[in-house]
Design a protein around this nucleic acid. Sequence first.
DNA 1: ATAAATTTTTAGATTAGACTAAAAAAAGTT
DNA 2: AACTTTTTTTAGTCTAATCTAAAAATTTAT
Lengths: 223, 223
Amino acid sequence: MSTHSFTEENYLKLIYALVSRGADEVSTNALAEVTATRAASVTDMLKRLADKQLVHYRKYQGVRLTDEGERLALTIIRRHRLWEVFLVDKLGFGWDQVHEMAEELEHIRSDELVERLDSFLGNPQFDPHGDPIPTPAGHMPAAPSQKMADLLPNESACLLGVLDHSAAFLQHLDRSGLVLGCTVNVSEISPFDRSMRVTIPPGQTLFVSYDVARNLLVGPTKA
Amino acid sequence: MSTHSFTEENYLKLIYALVSRGADEVSTNALAEVTATRAASVTDMLKRLADKQLVHYRKYQGVRLTDEGERLALTIIRRHRLWEVFLVDKLGFGWDQVHEMAEELEHIRSDELVERLDSFLGNPQFDPHGDPIPTPAGHMPAAPSQKMADLLPNESACLLGVLDHSAAFLQHLDRSGLVLGCTVNVSEISPFDRSMRVTIPPGQTLFVSYDVARNLLVGPTKA
DNA sequence: ATAAATTTTTAGATTAGACTAAAAAAAGTT
DNA sequence: AACTTTTTTTAGTCTAATCTAAAAATTTAT
């Protein structure tokens, strides 16, 4: 039942994010970058987190989360994503507007609140960007990994998520009419710039640049 | 657009609460009591709030809010009460469970969030305890002021709010079947202990102690 | 109106979380 | 292998919000 500061929670979340997208251990500088602080501040915090047994830390060697640290990181990510669903589904915010608010809401410290929110939202499996919502016990479900850019001509797929979460990218998708859950069919790929001609229901055709296609996650169509 | 710390917001809210229930100015000791800190800490904070023009403060004389301080206090109270409505109406919490969570939620800093929440909840005028919800512009609507203990035999009234917000009191009301909005009719008042015999729909009779009756707010029946 | 009690303020410390500047370790280059 | 560059850590400082102990102002009581 010990309680952690907002700052500590944010470090855990960010360490999780950095580890899960590649490296085995996270460097001090990488953390300084994502926390928007200096390396010296990061070192301080890592020592504190190590004292609390939330990370494994060896000088000059980088960090990784302990089991308890990972469990905690995942409950925070769970809260973040559930609040995003609330903001979009219930309050009508756009998926490009909710990140900052969820950054604050994720720190509200009541497990019962989170579980009631979860049922109120209908136990969603994914957040508005298609990211999977961790279980209450702290397990991260598998996420789709195939990119739209990997599709071949004549293949169809279901649009499931985004890799780039920036407001600019999300707004671009809005303007293009690309919505999560929609079925896309690749009719042609330009050999020159790898841009795709795709059709989406109801029979609409659009061009998707490679830069966009490699930031979109797809899966098998529901058919 | 300047931003204030949680702590500053809490001081403002508590100063408002103390002023509105009596005294013209609030003493350092009274604030130390409600903030659960020491007088010396309060003095420090009052200086900081005075620097930010949120309170009028003169040494040894107590404090009161500036117009800007009061406006801010009321937006925080507005947020608190709206979140309480959300927790009770949408998530199904009991009215005795929501205070602590709302204490955290009230500090989420997005005006658009609050206004969208307000519409989502159907623009409620009162929180689950019958306290009026301040307007977005920072105006506190009038609250009912008549106490159930002031009713005379044979008078009827509508139960509108509570003065005591403790979980113990609220749970007592739950066990008694006293619900906000219900019509109460006083059939008899004991001259000995001022306890009341009241009837509530559907034709149920119960005894209400003076201690309970003076913590209940009533108004004219809707009829 | 003077002394005693209470309240409030000052002075000086502490903690979390940040900072800068400098030292130490690791990695990269000839 | 030795030198250079980069990364990380240490050492010392800063701010917000707290604390204790002591001093100052106000209030109460004789």
